[in-house]
Design a protein around this nucleic acid. Sequence first.
DNA 1: GCCAACGTTGGC
DNA 2: GCCAACGTTGGC
Length: 137
Amino acid sequence: MAKWLFKSEPFKWSWAMQKAKGAEGQAWDGVRNYQARNNMRAMQLGDEGFFYHSNEGLEIVGIVEVCALVHPDPTTEDPRWECVDIRAVRDVPNPVTLAAIKAEPRLAKMSLVTSMRLSVQPVTDAEWDIVCQMGGL
DNA sequence: GCCAACGTTGGC
DNA sequence: GCCAACGTTGGC
């Protein structure tokens, strides 16, 4: 199963808000970038991803799971934009900061480092395992 | 708050 | 189809 990373500015949509939605999950709407949308199109039910706080925090704070396949984005009439739903699975005990990721040579090719502005990113299995270890999982 | 990176738009 | 202008993102 593939792994992903979802970025959110915590003052717009935080990990606490995501957790408050519980098992129901939340549509990852508002994405207006083809590459990010294409990543969501590739997602399968049960795929896991990191939840990353951008702008403030700058750290991976949680694990989420895809709970609805890609569907039209409810926040726009534009048929180009689609989104999946995700739900919170668990906290990352020791949030993994961007600085820590950049300081880890084995993560030098991670999208978070190389494609900083992409809001929905693929994560390799190797990267996933390393970040999980760093996060105390 | 600044600015670099980068995606998108629109004129030609 | 190219490319300059412009807007947005996001780290610092």
